[in-house]
């Protein structure tokens, strides 16, 4: 399980791999948090979110967009997420802490989660995705 930033001129493009769909979404979530707030993040506060969408790509975009909203409005920075996906329904338990300007200011704001170039695939090794964050 991993994610990496791959070359994109204007924005942040992430490629992730995982054995299950839930873990794959979790990697995209971790990438988003790292871009926003850097690597110094802790757990403690727990938050649950539920999302339902029309297709799997929308489910990922809707989930990450909801995370962006919660993080910004509630002033939370998340360390990790446990994600369960059943069909097109997602339940995520997010573990995080309050935003601390001294430790969480090394990242950049993500303006939106783009559908451009969004790929979610299953192959012999599990799942992979490409996703673009507008920064």
């Amino acid at each position: 399980m991993s994610f990496e930033e791959i070359s994109h001129t204007a924005d942040v493009k992430i490629r992730a791999r995982a054995l299950t769909l839930g873990a794959l979404f979790s990697e995209a979530f971790l990438a988003l948090m790292q871009v926003l707030y850097g690597t110094d993040r802790k757990g403690g506060i727990v938050k649950e979110i539920q999302i339902e969408s029309d297709n799997i790509e929308s489910l990922l975009c809707d989930f990450l967009s909801e995370v962006l909203f919660i993080a910004e409005v509630k002033g939370l920075v998340f360390l990790r997420a446990d994600i369960k996906i059943e069909g097109l329904h997602l339940t995520a338990i997010l573990y995080g802490e309050s935003f601390d300007p001294l430790r969480h200011s090394s990242g950049t704001e993500v303006k939106g989660i783009s559908y451009s170039g969004l790929i979610i695939q299953k192959d012999a090794n599990g799942y992979m995705l490409d996703i673009l964050f507008d920064v």
């Binding site: 001129t9 559908y115 170039g117």
Partner: peptide, 9 residues
């Protein structure tokens, strides 16, 4: 012009 999303930048 450069690579963006939707329209090019």
């Amino acid at each position: 012009i450069h690579w963006g999303y939707g329209f090019p930048i």
